[in-house]
Design a binder for these strands. Structure first.
Length: 886
DNA sequence: GGCATCACG
DNA sequence: ACGTACGTGATGCCT
């Protein structure tokens, strides 16, 4: 096979990158976006082409032969913006550090160098690829010279590839005739004058017919559109000169040395250092310096494609003291299984032939019966996959499972994701190749089929890293006092949540549809009315357009509140013009539009064939330890406004069941009372019916029965404020009072409950000293903000330090309750099941005959989840839908 | 993909 | 003086 050479038009690619990549700056203040884009494009093409030789050509700032030929050519090069100009020498440094040859010569443009080397390489029998952003280069295309033009389409960079025929297909002319076209059409970017009045169409017609400009001129009398004929006659000299300007010189006087261009290992240590300084973090792994360590590890990863061998591996798996596994799936299909049985045994077993998904997971399930410690990532997802293939985990075996993601989350709950790659770096001190690096943007299925070797590496690390990181994760959990939290609360919760998600909640699709249709009618009416009142139609959903109507056209006085313009939030609009019918209609429209899009239409799309909605509870998202619910979010179903609340009527129990809803009464305040140990508050909450009223009576020194509604409302706001990490500003905002008044409320509150203040202060103090806040059950929230010199950030940190222990402890308590409720329902042989958790609320689908037992279990386990100095009270109701039950 | 808005605890 | 309440997720607009 002939050798391949890749020639890169440095100037055009870096320009393209500069304008295509969002501005980036490293911490030294150097702009880096163009370099980043250039390297990304280069890597992509290198991976596709795998050339033997590589050279990048640059322009030199010096007059070329074109300047001598044509005066106006001077100064034609658009001056580079300074932000781009400064990046060019740095890019060259990076390329040189990678051992990549660059070429430039005074008096020559990059095009000419590329053309010259391309032709010479072709003459030596090489396959040539020229990478450029400039279509002029198409004139170089031949059977053996391919021009690649990068093109960004919807964020994905693809390249258009041109050999001779591709040029003809697209432009109807041969590659060399591209010059003729350009000479006729001109090119303002390159200041090639062309022939005025001749555009792409005419130029193409002329060249297709006459072959070149000279011949067209020879037949100028025949030329059909008079406009073209006159133009060519008048500007023929110009066209000839333009042709010379547009012609790439393929025979430059340049001493090119192929040996120097020979491509070696570009991922050098020197390049690593530069990439690190440029802060291209996702590129860094390509340049990893611990490549030797990686290679040693990767060598042991074994691809197992033979059925017998796979069988042996899985038999062996059943006998090890611990293992790690990863199921690779895509679009519901199991593609492969990764298994690490010891430091030296890692297997990647693709699903193929006799090795079916059912067989593979079935055999894995058999092994699970015997292995004392089983590690994976995203255990809940694995359970789902196993269950879909008929594998269930016995209750007694659940304790054997570890989830590395959850362990990493407990150690640092602030991260966005917990990937194998990050675990490798943090807990194994190893930089592993990223998925993008191995497969590019390919799907897993495609990668397995076409890049088996890369898949072996990817799959191998997937379980190897879990195996290697777990001991460290456990050790750190132990050291930080979170091992119990992990083993006794979070891991069992995985199984509880798995059950809830599998169960799903029944939804009356017809009722939901009707609800949506009713909304649509009213929305339509409001729309018409709003357009009438505004005197024109506009997009009511666009805050920008709405702002123009309200503040510019109608002249309502609204302060500019957001970064982008006027704020049109409900808060602003309500204050703005409570009397204005337009504003009132917009508010109602907004409310209905929200209900329709997010809830009526939104939820309908999630009803599965079983007639139920199966949300996903995320266990590793929040900073405080709460759960979150996605696809769809069932933790924010409307309740505060009656119309929205109606939607809860579509959540119904299955036949023979009712919904039972139990929610903790003011759990966070009770947690606060307990954690602070404030005798007054504890005493108050022990017997109180109405906590906010009692707070008001104590804070304002009024008999309980004489507390006014306003006083109660104020006390309630203070109670909330305390939980959020009180600030006089926040409270004043909430109550629409002055800051001073707010400050007085807070002061009085703290006088009444002195230990609360002590406790909150101690939370901040401890967080400052240790760098993290802690819940009653040892859950940590790191708080880097507290060290900030920025007042805003530090204040935020202080509020978080007060809130996290309270919100987090409440989250811990309900997690305990969930596990206990789940366990008891099963232990007592009941069919009723937990369906949802909404932070302080649990929803159960209870068989009517089990109702009494279910209520007893809920009440005992929720109230008994923690021993606090105050009772943990719940409100419990049942109903034929969620509306009634809550 | 960021921003504004709004739904919940 | 600084300029905010704590924690989430979904939708629609717009660059």
């Amino acid at each position: 096979m002939s050798e391949k050479i890749l020639l890169v038009d440095g100037h055009s690619i870096i320009n393209r990158a500069f304008y295509g990549v969002t501005d980036l700056t490293n911490s030294e203040g150097l702009h880096t976006n163009a370099i980043y884009g250039f390297l990304n494009t280069l890597f992509k093409v290198l991976e596709e082409e795998k050339p033997d030789y590589l050279t990048v050509a640059f322009d030199v700032k010096a007059p070329t032969f074109r300047h001598q030929m044509y005066d106006a050519y001077k100064g034609t090069r658009k001056p580079m913006p300074a932000e781009l100009h400064e990046q060019v020498p740095v890019l060259k440094d990076v390329l040189h550090a990678m051992g990549i040859e660059t070429m430039e010569k005074a008096g020559l443009e990059a095009d000419d160098l590329l053309g010259t080397v391309a032709r010479r390489s072709e003459a030596r029998g090489m396959e040539v690829t020229v990478l450029s952003g400039d279509r002029d280069l198409l004139q170089l295309a031949t059977e053996h010279i391919r021009i690649r033009l990068p093109k960004t389409k919807g964020g994905v960079t693809e390249t258009e590839n041109y050999n001779t025929q591709d040029v003809i297909d697209k432009y109807q002319v041969a590659p060399l005739q591209i010059i003729e076209l350009k000479a006729l059409m001109g090119d303002s970017a390159d200041n090639i004058p062309g022939v005025p009045g001749i555009g792409e169409k005419t130029a193409t017609n002329l060249i297709v017919q006459y072959g070149n400009i000279e011949n067209a001129y020879a037949h100028v009398e025949e030329i059909k559109p008079n406009r073209a004929k006159n133009a060519l006659q008048e500007h023929y000299d110009m066209a000839v000169m333009s042709k010379a300007l547009a012609t790439i010189n393929t025979d430059c006087d340049y001493d090119y040395d192929w040996d120097k261009a020979k491509l070696g290992n570009i991922y050098t240590e020197a390049a690593y250092a530069l990439i690190k300084r440029l802060e291209f973090k996702n590129m860094l792994s390509r340049f990893r310096v611990d490549a030797p360590a990686n290679e040693k590890i990767e060598k042991i990863f074994q691809m197992v494609e033979d059925f017998g061998e796979a069988d042996q591996v899985l038999t062996k798996a059943a006998a090890v003291p611990r293992l790690a596994f990863a199921v690779h799936q895509e679009e519901g299909q199991v593609l492969a299984l990764s298994l690490t049985l010891s430091e030296k045994e890692t297997y990647v077993i693709p699903v193929e032939g006799f090795v079916t998904a059912d067989w593979l997971l079935g055999r894995l399930g058999e092994a699970f019966a015997h292995v004392p410690e089983i590690t994976t990532l995203k255990l809940k997802e694995a359970l789902k996959c196993l269950s879909a293939h008929g594998v269930t985990i016995e209750k007694e075996r659940q304790g054997a499972f570890l989830d590395a993601e959850i362990a990493a989350y407990l150690l640092n709950p602030l991260k966005d994701s917990y990937t194998c790659e990050e675990l490798a770096k943090e807990y194994v001190s190893l930089t592993i190749p990223s998925r993008v690096e191995l497969f590019g943007k390919d799907k897993l299925t495609k990668a397995l089929e076409e890049k088996a070797e890369a898949f072996r590496i990817y799959g191998g690390y997937a379980s190897y890293i879990l195996y290697q990181s777990m001991p460290t994760l456990l050790a750190e959990l132990h050291e930080t006092g979170m091992e119990d939290l992990y083993r006794e609360m979070e891991l069992p919760l995985v199984f509880t949540l798995f059950g809830m998600e599998q169960e799903g909640i029944r939804v009356d699709a017809q009722a939901l549809k009707t609800y949506g249709e009713e909304l649509a009618v009213r929305i339509g009416e409001l729309e018409t009315k709003i357009y009438e009142e505004a005197g024109e139609t506009f997009n009511i959903n666009s805050p920008k357009q709405l702002g123009v109507i309200l503040f510019d056209k109608m002249g309502l006085k609204g302060g500019k509140k957001t970064k982008t313009g006027y704020s049109t939030s409900a808060e602003v609009l309500e204050k703005l013009a409570p009397e204005c019918p337009l504003v009132a209609d917009i508010l109602e429209y907004r409310q209905l539009a929200k209900l329709k899009s997010t809830y009526a239409d939104g939820l309908a799309a999630y009803i599965e064939p079983d007639g139920r909605i199966h949300t996903t509870f995320q266990q590793t998202i929040t900073a405080t330890g709460r759960l979150s619910s996605v696809e769809p979010n069932l933790q924010n179903i409307p309740i505060r406004m009656e119309l929205g609340r109606q939607i809860r009527k579509v959540f119904i129990p299955r036949e023979g069941c009712v919904l039972v809803d139990a929610d903790y009464s003011q759990i966070e305040l009770r947690v606060l009372a307990h954690m602070s140990g404030d005798a007054n508050l504890i005493h108050a909450y022990r017997g109180a019916q109405d906590i906010h009223r009692l707070t008001a009576s104590q804070v304002f020194h009024i008999p309980f029965d004489e507390v006014t509604d306003l006083q109660r409302r104020n006390a309630k706001a203070v109670n909330f404020g305390i939980v959020y990490g009180i600030s006089s500003f926040g409270l004043s905002q909430d109550l629409s009072i002055s800051r001073k008044e707010a400050q007085e409320y807070i002061q009085k509150y703290f006088e009444t409950y002195p230990k609360i203040k002590e406790f909150l202060d101690s939370c901040v103090e401890e967080a400052k000293e240790k760098g993290y806040a802690r819940t009653m059950f040892g859950r940590r929230r790191p708080m880097p903000e507290l060290k900030s010199s920025n007042f805003m950030q530090r204040s935020f940190g202080e509020r978080v330090a007060m809130n996290a222990p309270i919100q987090g402890t409440a989250a811990d308590i309900i997690k305990i309750a969930m596990n206990r409720v789940d366990r008891r329902l099963k232990a007592e042989g009941l069919k009723s099941r937990l369906l949802l958790q909404v932070h302080d609320e649990l929803l159960i689908e209870a068989y009517t005959e089990e109702l009494d037992k279910v209520e007893q279990i809920l009440s005992e386990e929720m109230q008994g989840a923690a021993e606090l100095a105050v009772p943990l009270e719940i409100d419990m109701k049942q109903g034929k839908n969620w509306y009634e039950a809550h």
